[in-house]
């Protein structure tokens, strides 16, 4: 049997969604309460890492693969940069907050922070995918001593 015991698997099956949702909550309310892109992203990555620990790395690699995480990793960084560049274009300054920030009667609303919400989401995706990739790489690569006595890093499966 791959992965951990039945108890761990069952609990993980229940808990994973809540961990994921808590990460999403931290990201989208990052400008209103403690939290934000980085901490929320870490928690989202943790939900996938928990799945990998409980069910074994073959489970995660076969279901999700690393391809999507790699694309998200680079594209979310680009989105963050584009948010900054749009400020350059419309506000005249790099990272200017050009979106509407005040809605009458609704102080501290979800959309009341201009582009900080978009930046937080981009950072969250970036952190989640990067941390997930770091964990996968660490679990897939091993240090092996070759026949010539030289240590090399080898990969369990081909990643591309």
């Amino acid at each position: 049997m791959k992965g951990m015991s039945l108890i761990v698997k069952t609990v993980t099956r229940w808990v994973k969604v809540f961990i994921f949702l808590f990460g999403v909550y931290l990201i989208i309310t990052g400008h209103l309460s403690p939290g934000g892109g980085f901490s929320g992203g870490v928690i989202i990555a943790c939900s996938y890492i928990l799945l990998t620990l409980a069910f074994g790395k073959e489970f995660t690699l076969n279901r999700f693969g690393t391809g999507i995480a790699k694309v998200l990793d680079s594209s979310s960084a680009l989105i963050f940069l584009i948010v900054g560049l749009l400020g350059f274009g419309s506000g005249g300054v790099f990272f200017a907050n050009y979106l509407q920030k005040r809605f009458p009667g609704e102080e501290l609303s979800l959309l009341g922070s201009g582009n900080i919400l978009i930046s937080n989401i981009a950072i969250g995706i970036k952190v989640a995918s990067s941390l997930f990739l770091v964990f996968i790489i660490l679990s897939v690569l091993r240090l092996v001593t070759g026949t010539d006595g030289i240590k090399r890093i080898v990969q369990d499966e081909e990643e591309e």
């Binding site: 680079s74 594209s75 680009l78 940069l81 900054g84 560049l85």
Partner: peptide, 23 residues
């Protein structure tokens, strides 16, 4: 001075564009 950010934006943007389209 308006173009100072470009010194950061150009290498940073290209660094993340390359893994997307040049793999």
């Amino acid at each position: 001075t308006i173009s100072i950010p470009l010194l950061i934006v150009i290498p940073l943007g290209t660094a993340f564009l390359i893994p997307l389209i040049a793999r």
